[in-house]
Write a protein that binds this DNA or RNA. Structure first.
Lengths: 139, 139
DNA sequence: GTCGAATTTTAGCCAACGCTAAAATTTTTT
DNA sequence: AAAAAATTTTAGCGTTGGCTAAAATTCGAC
């Protein structure tokens, strides 16, 4: 183990980072669900995330107040333009991380799980290196 | 962008994962602080994590109830054997992730930040690949 | 030893995310 | 159309982690 190490960690991701991660996960899931089955409801997300529909409801309220999601009472969920853009960025990032792990030699199941966790913590610079590595490995 | 992708995400990390991450970060920081300046106080952690000492105090209470930290009133913090083991595992994992990012060609500052975020989400299998890659790149 | 500074502890507030129970609404079945 | 099923909403509670203010204790200087 080296010596230099990464001392003096800038500081741990704060509570507001968690809010962002949640927003990203939900927006990404909404986009994918709409893509696959044309509508997305609260129940769909509850099933995907294994939480109660009530929890989803409250998170959706927050995302709505942040301008990422639109919805009328008792109607299915929609993304705002801003929500769509976020979903697209997240999907791309997610895919790059996943392909990178595969290129590294990680098995599909593990890569899928780890990508889920890692994606939110990859800076643009690192993401670019991930992409290059995967391309180089594949090509 | 590929097609297969990582569909049907197992499900997002739950709230209890965050508790674990916090525990890991704190235990790791306590161990390092003790290593560097022989004692670790609540204030030290507050400074490192940029949160109030009151927040640290409450988190330490929890870690104590979980058997990771020991402390007597107004005294510095100590790790239990279990806390020490956790700190050692986390430090090792952190170091592997950091060295891996460096081996990939990420600059030190970015690698330090990203390692902080990524370390909690790397499975044992992936960690091992990270280690192999870094060794191979260096060797 | 006393006083002042630093540190820790307690009290009390807020937000996010987890839950169950129950009410309201929509959809489907009969 | 009425009844049943599914879905969404509201109400209310618990935990974690964020804060400030103020009290208690320890430590250092004098």
């Amino acid at each position: 183990m080296s010596k230099a190490s990464s001392k003096s960690a800038p500081h741990r991701r704060t509570r507001s980072d968690h809010r962002t991660e949640t927003a990203e996960d939900y927006v990404e899931a909404i986009a994918q669900t709409i893509r696959e089955q044309s509508v997305c409801r609260i129940t769909d997300l509850a099933r995907q995330f294994s939480v109660s529909h009530v929890t989803v409801h409250r998170i959706i309220e927050r995302l709505q107040s942040e301008g990422l999601v639109e919805t009328e009472p008792y109607k299915p969920l929609r993304l705002t333009p801003s929500g769509e853009r976020l979903a697209t960025r997240c999907r791309r990032r997610h895919e790059i991380v996943y392909q990178f792990l595969l290129a590294l030699g990680i098995d599909q199941a593990t890569a899928a799980i780890d990508a889920e966790g890692i994606e939110h913590h990859v800076s643009p610079a690192t993401l670019q290196r991930f992409e290059e590595f995967a391309r180089q490995q594949r090509g």
